[in-house]
Design a protein around this nucleic acid. Structure first.
Lengths: 210, 210
DNA sequence: TTTTTTCTGTTGCAATTGCAACAAATTATG
DNA sequence: CATAATTTGTTGCAATTGCAACAGAAAAAA
């Protein structure tokens, strides 16, 4: 389970003449890719932060996933589409590799050993993603706003190994991530403070339970 | 993308002396595995149907995933646990292969070529799972019961390639799968019928829109 | 620095959802 | 077949959540 997932370490091995992969950078706010679901695109976020966004027909915005270094994303993961448009937006400056899934399976020039490294790690990258998605499902399947918030705080605090942490979202974004109304969420955060579950200043949270 | 995922075709190649894998069968209602999150277990459902179940502290039951032929599951996908116990329950007679993740990476005896086949297909199995989970997330992130139901019906009808289909759950289970109250769901189904979105007899549904 | 935009925090009210309880129908089990 | 257990369908009521609207704070842009 302790595999070096940091593919940017291997970037120097990527042949610059390699046609199977594109490397691009994006500024905050730019759209990295939109899921048109035809090209079988697979993307690797080498560096930065980005969100996968969906707007439904009522204008509700959902942050479907939040990506950081070495996360993968792309149309390839959305075969069964349920209508709404999805797109990935850079939240900070991002460097992204773009592949076409079918090309990935083929070997490149001998000098371009990056492909092989990526293929070797693909299982691990997928496994990582499955774990992330399961965590996400656990949060979304919670029944109340309070449970979603506490569950989310618990996940963050586990990752940071500490009871005090910074929320990596604005509160507006957090509501869109947990798929709840922002004002209702604010109300619940207030009650969590009153009930002694958390302390909060800015977007720094301290858990007071367990 | 058209890879033969049906691993049961390769089962005859599994060496019976192979110690790296266990094969077991289960009757309806039996617990296939419980996620103790220590053994790094990876399971493959060769044949049958099973549900991954979670009970929260208030006694709410959630069907986290529904597994059919060639689906994979296991602790390995739940590194970041958020407290509640998870277990997999057979809904029909099931045949399951059990692996320990780390063993999987090692080669077995020469006569046991099944391992290699499995390893080769692991990426595809993962990819498949990621697609499933993304669909699941899309449903769970919908804001209303109506949207969840319509979204779910759309997914099923896409898989079956037809506007009439059988729900593979009891309605009680469907509510637990969509993470909503059963009676509220029944009320919404009734309104969907009244509003002319669906027809329903038993657990056979016909979509009347689009 | 000033202006504009976005984000936070709050609240009343309406709509949706969950809860509890029950009868009827269906399915499992002895 | 008879009985038990589970599932479906329904409803009134309570609790939760969403919506709308706004003011102040903070952040971004000019």
């Amino acid at each position: 389970m302790n595999i070096d997932l940091n593919l940017s370490n291997f970037m120097e091995e990527l042949d610059h003449n390699c046609k199977k992969v594109q490397k691009k950078s994006f500024q905050k706010g730019e759209v990295i890719t939109s899921y048109i679901a035809k090209r079988n695109q697979l993307c690797l976020l080498l560096f930065g932060e980005a969100d996968l966004i969906r707007y439904d027909l009522n204008g509700n915005r959902t942050i479907v996933e939040h990506f950081t270094n070495n996360d993968i994303f792309g149309e390839i993961f959305y075969t069964v589409n349920t209508n709404n448009e999805l797109f990935v937006e850079a939240k900070k400056t991002c460097t992204v590799l773009f592949f076409i899934y079918d090309d990935l399976q083929q070997k490149c020039t001998k000098s371009c050993s990056f492909h092989q490294v990526l293929l070797d790690r693909l299982s691990s990258l997928y496994l990582n993603k499955v774990i992330e998605l399961n965590t996400r499902i656990e949060l979304l399947s919670k029944r109340t706003i309070r449970e979603k918030l506490l569950g989310y705080f618990y996940v963050i605090s586990s990752k940071n190994m500490g009871k005090t942490f910074q929320i990596p979202f604005s509160l507006t974004d957090l509501a869109d991530y947990l798929s709840i109304d922002r004002s209702a969420m604010m109300r619940e955060i207030k009650m969590l403070k009153e009930d002694g579950f958390i302390e909060k200043s800015g977007n720094r949270i301290r858990l007071l339970y367990k």
